[in-house]
Design a protein around this nucleic acid. Structure first.
Lengths: 261, 261
DNA sequence: TCGGCCTCATTGACTAGACAATGCAGACGT
DNA sequence: ACGTCTGCATTGTCTAGTCAATGAGGCCGA
């Protein structure tokens, strides 16, 4: 009976617990058996039980709340609708449309803004056409919802472009950074979006209070002026357990949609 | 000197190795010191060194190739451009636009297709407006590039809708499943896209040969007819270490782009 | 009644081993 | 020269412990 599954013991313990989670026997937020209980259940050492737990934690299924125990992770994703941003006008100018939508749902948004001068990271340098020895202005923002961090939003500008402007002041820019850029003669009319999926760096994990087993989506936007000069790079980091990106499409012409099979 | 970093020893070992990777001292594909070497370097047990290794593996920075050693992961992401699909016509009708693009780069694509009758997963059932006891037709496809799995593409249809049609045949549908749906009187004119980021399930991990520390993006498409009836749900699973989603935008009117700060 | 202290269950960190599994390279035989 | 076999280095799995850290709940005194 216990010999059914193949592979090492800790995998079978993990499989057993995973099945109990997926079947609903252990629902979201439920407490898992203690490590001690599992050692007697399966007749193994605590180290082996611990290995099984780690499998589940790394899958993002389980969280450990020391010393209370292990619990089935509860995931609540808020839907992020990029398309809204083209259509609606923000009701609260100091917030963007995403936060705006959440306010209507009764949540309390907040944010922190910090401005730094630094050397550009390699990906930013490449996209802005700068050398690693150049200097960029970074506006680092963390957005919170009901007190917990929700995503980060770091904007990089070439120093020479925004020198002395409002962008270097660590406060919210009511009319938007793009407006300021336009006033500086660098109006942004074209953008390239890139999304990559990976595990967070330790920095990102601490800034966003990301637990083990939670990946992030990095959304990078490079903004260009009319004549193709890059003037801004934005890096948004979205924790996977808190975001669901959603958008809608209507078939434009006779052309088919994305995939066929 | 070794007392600088805070926290447990294994974290300091992991930090040390991470720094050496990020500094370039250990480049992509480089072999890390053996566990044995690290035990003597840091004066700890192999179990502690192993814990440090696991941190790096879970971050997706390092892969273990037993028994050759641990190596710095090499990531090569192919850019996936959803927008291309609206514009270009596929040169090879049996491939979609993504694969088509890769052929031009000299890569060899292939795919497997399996068709099953099954009960719908809960997310699919909810979007198709079905009960868990209903039956759906699933077309499961795995796409390969140069022999390694690249992504999966599972399409779910209500059984009653596609009963007896070409969709139930486990071969490629040259003119596209949407065309077949249209011939069945269920033309798809509207779609909702959802993207969520998470760790792969064990099933997904084995189907896509995903290593530890690699998350996935799940791209779910629900297709509707003109009168709002859902006729199809597609679930694409994209491993994070192989995909970079990219698209471009030009400012439509006077409206600002996505974010300001 | 309320604040502070103490106990305790539980997870985290680490030691010191043993044996298994597996690519690779070098020795060996044909 | 070529296939095979064997040994070895390295990671994987597991045992059997010890001590530390920490949140929660109960006890106790003011």
């Amino acid at each position: 009976m216990t010999s059914r599954g193949a592979g090492p013991i800790y995998q079978r313990i993990a499989d057993d617990l995973r099945a109990r989670i997926q079947s609903g026997e252990l629902g979201a937020g439920a407490k898992l058996p203690t490590e001690q209980a599992l050692t007697t259940d399966f007749g193994v050492t605590r180290a082996t039980v611990r290995q099984a737990m780690q499998v589940l934690v790394n899958e993002g299924l389980v969280v450990s709340e020391r010393p209370r125990g292990h619990f089935v992770r509860q995931i609540e994703r808020l839907t992020y609708r990029p398309q809204k941003e083209w259509r609606d006008r923000p009701a609260h100018p100091e917030l963007d449309q995403f936060m705006d939508e959440q306010v209507e749902l009764g949540r309390k948004p907040s944010q922190t803004i910090a401005v730094e001068l630094a050397a550009p990271p390699t990906d930013v340098a490449a996209r802005l056409g700068l050398a690693g020895t150049d200097t960029v202005v970074v506006r680092k923002r963390v957005r919170y919802l009901d007190g917990t961090p929700f995503n980060t939003n770091d904007s990089y500008f070439p120093l020479e472009l925004v020198q002395g402007s409002e962008i270097m002041h660590p406060a919210d820019i009511g009319r938007g950074a793009n407006q300021v850029l336009a006033e500086l003669g660098a109006e942004q009319t074209h953008a390239v979006d890139e999304i990559e999926v990976r595990m967070p760096t330790p920095d990102e994990a601490s800034r966003l209070e990301i637990g083990l087993g939670v990946p992030v989506a990095m959304h990078r936007v490079t903004g260009y002026t009319d004549d193709g000069r890059p003037v801004r790079v934005v890096r948004n980091v979205l924790p996977g357990d808190r975001h669901l990106i959603a958008f809608e499409r209507t078939r434009p012409t006779k052309t088919e949609k994305d995939d066929k099979q």
